[in-house]
């Protein structure tokens, strides 16, 4: 049987190849957001689609350029991210849902 859902997922994974979660980025990293996808099982206190919408409302949207500016002193959390012309602070656990492609030059 031809599994359409699996195929779609495979295609999505291919598009995300070479991308990483924003939650693992380090200060100085820059790049572009490739996907905002609230799909993982972690408890966020709000439903995952709500988190996705909040991220989107703060400007975490596909195609936006970002730079990781600062991180906290303890457990390197939270992080401060420059998004176009704004600075947004968020926790790494909430940044897990943001997939980014880093500029190679930055690493």
């Amino acid at each position: 049987m031809h599994d359409l859902a699996a195929e779609a997922r495979a295609q999505a994974d291919e598009a995300l190849a070479g991308s990483t979660r924003l939650s693992v980025a380090r200060p100085g990293d820059r790049g572009v957001i490739v996907e905002v996808r609230a799909d993982h099982a972690r408890e966020h206190g709000v439903d995952v689609h709500e988190l996705e919408r909040r991220l989107l409302e703060f400007g975490f949207v596909e195609g936006a350029r970002f730079e990781l500016l600062h991180e906290g002193a303890i457990w390197k959390d939270p992080i401060a991210v420059r998004l176009d012309d704004m600075r947004i602070a968020l926790r790494r656990r909430d940044a897990e849902d943001v997939w980014v492609r880093l500029d190679t030059a930055a690493r």
């Binding site: 408890e43 966020h44 703060f58 939270p78 600075r87 947004i88 602070a89 968020l90 926790r91 909430d94």
Partner: peptide, 12 residues
């Protein structure tokens, strides 16, 4: 009930 809300904040 243990819920931790997301923390998103603009740094003006």
């Amino acid at each position: 009930r243990g819920a931790v809300e997301p923390f998103l904040m603009e740094l003006p």
